[in-house]
Amino acid sequence: MIVIANILVVLLISIGVIFTVVAVIGVLRLPDVYTRSHAATKSTTFGVLCTLSGVFLYFWLIEGDFNIKLLLGIVFLFITAPIGGHIMGRAAYISGVKPSELTVKDELEEVVKQAKKDRTSQKMKSDED
């Protein structure tokens, strides 16, 4: 039983380490902010999920302690890490960081331009009032 638990723990932590290392290579080599945030949020989240699941299984199966704090940490990270990446990408686009030259299509450009125009015209109108 302990052998099976050990194999499970080692397998999960190895998957986590592999995903983290791949994500770091992506952060080092990809060309612009948006692709880098893609590497940094998605695969790092999966890697840390696998590692924490391995630790949770270790404490549950080998030490005999069902640790609810670790489970809460797993759920919290799974919810918040992609939200942080998304909101950071939005902030980068609005603050005017250019995508790399390899980008094929930018569909957000017209929408943001229209929204800025609407906002300035609305502000002028409220100033006149």
Partner: peptide
């Protein structure tokens, strides 16, 4: 750019979390 740095800092936090989890197994 600044968003690059913030994303990298966020990633450092997440890697630290998995490192601390690994240490807690190592020290039991």
């Amino acid at each position: 750019s600044l968003p690059d740095r913030v994303i990298a800092l966020d990633m450092i936090g997440v890697i630290l979390i998995s490192g601390i989890a690994t240490i807690s197994i190592l020290l039991e």
